Simulated assay, not measured.
Amino acid sequence: MENYQFKFKWLNDQGQPQGFYSKKGHFDGETLVLDTVDLPSAAILDVDYRERTVILSVVGENSEPVHLLFNVTSGSADRLKLMLGRARSRAWARRHKEELASEGRSSEYRDVTCPHCHAVIDLSGFAKTPQVSCEFCHTVSDDQSESFDAPAKGEKKYRLCDECGMFSKPRRFTIFYFYFLLVVYGFSHRQTWRCPGCMRSEAWKMLLGNAIFVLGVPVAIAQLFRAYGGTDVGGKYPGLDSANIKARNGKFQQAIDDYRKILDKQPVAAGVKYNIAMAFLHREDWEGAARMFQYSLTDCANYRPSARGLAACYEHLGETEKLAALKKQWGAKDDEVLLEELPEE
């Protein structure tokens, strides 16, 4: 693997750059070097990025996770995340394979390669299902062949929305406000990734907030057009945006009906069934939610959002044996491992 070099600036807890000059970093396929900090890829628990900002979770003292934030000032944050994902996946898969071999269980090891980011997805202990989830690029892919190397058209864009947490097709969204107060003027600007439903409310706020100063209005109008532009037309799950918006507005039964119409055309859809389960949760129907999370896992056995939701349901319903079995399947040693990101009610 090539030695990828880049420049970066550390960010503080408020997301502000530290220092005036950029520092040097590189990744050789095994170790990520950030100035004077060396991080073996196997010690990096999670990686994500937004625009040029990279967020790392690494193993710290006493095995506690430590979060590191930095801006890539020269180079590509996307490319760095992709390379780290591949390296981490290979290291983790190799370690698990060796562990199973040492226990005389080599035959239990199974993996596939993600068709989108080419990370190794360890599926040991999971049933073979029509879909496979990749935690390194957050996609859910259809297993269309034994080689699993032909991704379905458009599926890469679907994932959980940063804002509402629903399975959707988030897009980059620019939040822009201009202000002018006598002799003082300026603007605020940031970018997020949101689904159309989340984009709409913020776009209207932008339009109203910028109306008095005019200059920010064109950006707000452009974002309104994008939010109402029917992003799922021609997509893999037509009607998903509309169903999600109904769920956001508390019209849960209408949303569930729309989700089921999608399933009539796409019966294998772990993410859509996850959304239905979340709608049941909002109605406090824990048994219905558990059933839908199970259906979601039947489509995609290693889909962690549904596993977390199912664990929450089992805990609420007092299904201790089922919860213990689920935790064992996911290698969870305590409640926090699987329940750390429970869906909100």
Rank of each mutant, 00 (worst) to 15 (best):
V268T: 13
R283C: 14
L263Y: 03
D258R: 05
K251L: 09
A247Y: 00
N244A: 08
G239K: 00
Q294A: 14
A279M: 01
L281G: 13
Q254I: 01
A269D: 04
I245M: 12
E284A: 15
I276W: 00
A279I: 03
A269M: 02
A270F: 01
K265Y: 07
V268G: 13
D241A: 03
N275K: 01
K236G: 09
N302C: 05
N275T: 06
A277C: 07
D258G: 15
D241G: 09
Y295F: 14
H282L: 12
S242Q: 09
V272L: 03
N244E: 04
A290I: 01
K246R: 06
N244Q: 04
T298R: 10
L263I: 06
A243C: 09
A290S: 05
D285R: 03
D257L: 08
W286S: 13
F280Y: 10
N302P: 08
G239L: 00
R260G: 13
P238D: 00
L297F: 10
A290P: 04
D257F: 06
L281N: 03
I262R: 03
G250Q: 06
D258L: 04
Q254H: 11
L281M: 06
G288A: 05
L240T: 03
F252A: 12
L240I: 01
A301F: 07
A279G: 07
R248W: 05
D299Y: 02
A270V: 06
I245L: 13
F293N: 01
E284L: 13
Y259D: 09
A243E: 10
Y259N: 11
G250D: 14
K273R: 14
E284Q: 15
I276L: 01
S242I: 04
A279D: 02
A290W: 01
Y237P: 04
D257R: 04
E287A: 15
G239C: 05
W286N: 14
W286T: 13
P238G: 02
G239V: 02
K265D: 12
A270D: 00
K251R: 12
G239P: 06
V272C: 06
K273L: 04
L297E: 06
